[in-house]
């Protein structure tokens, strides 16, 4: 099963504001490996070539924090979604 269909099985309550902020200037000036594109279990990170920036679809975030731990440039400002927002696991 592909990722989008799998994520659609989960219950999300999406905030209007992202809880993940990318510091593009750090990505551009320091990052060559772009770990974020590979480590996210929800595959939420994309590289937009035209704009030369990393984009993240925060709505499907499973809140594991792997991207934050993996990024060694400190370019991912990651907090938990505000109370009542984000993924709501029904089994866990």
């Amino acid at each position: 099963m592909d990722l989008d269909r799998k994520l659609a099985l989960d219950a999300f309550k999406t905030d209007s504001k992202s809880h993940i902020l990318i510091r593009h200037e750090l990505c551009r000036s320091r990052c060559t490996r772009r770990y974020c594109l590979y480590v996210c279990p929800a595959g939420l990170y994309r590289y937009d070539e035209q704009r030369d920036e990393i984009q993240v679809e925060y709505a499907g975030c499973l809140e594991c924090g792997t991207c934050r731990v993996a990024c060694d440039k400190g370019a991912i400002e990651w907090s938990y979604p505000r109370g009542a927002y984000g993924v709501q696991y029904r089994y866990g």
Partner: peptide
């Protein structure tokens, strides 16, 4: 996904319905 396709795993989950996908550190 590759793990689930292994012959050691697939017979266990055949016909099963995925209820939730989760991740945690």
């Amino acid at each position: 996904e590759s793990f689930k396709e292994r012959p050691e795993i697939s017979p266990y989950i055949e016909g099963g319905e995925i209820l939730e996908y989760s991740a945690h550190l």
